[in-house]
């Protein structure tokens, strides 16, 4: 299963750790995690269900969208974009 890690900044607010979750896209993997930790959704996604403007998601060394496919061996990094200041 893909693995998800979070910026240490987010761990100030939520008890998030690196976890394995089922999902064949970035969005599906995140959705599976939101079921376990409902508060997390509002920290990563905005009102319209899009990745927050100042959050960046990386897979395979590139910034990715929610629809990006992930393989079981992939590692998804949820980071703060430097645009947030």
């Amino acid at each position: 299963m893909p693995c998800i890690s979070f910026t240490g900044h987010l761990r100030r607010y939520l008890p998030v750790a690196t976890v394995e979750v089922a999902g064949d896209t970035v969005g599906a993997a995140l959705s599976a995690l939101f079921e376990r930790e409902p508060r997390l959704r509002g920290y990563v996604l905005d009102d319209q269900g899009e990745i927050r403007r100042h959050v960046a998601i990386f897979v395979g060394g590139e910034r990715r969208a929610l629809a990006h496919p992930v393989k079981p061996e992939d590692h998804i990094y949820v980071l703060q974009a430097l645009s947030g200041g």
């Binding site: 900044h9 607010y13 509002g42 920290y43 990563v44 100042h54 959050v55 947030g84 200041g85």
Partner: peptide, 8 residues
């Protein structure tokens, strides 16, 4: 207003 992570 957490900036990166929105309004809480």
């Amino acid at each position: 207003d957490l900036g990166h992570f929105g309004v809480k």
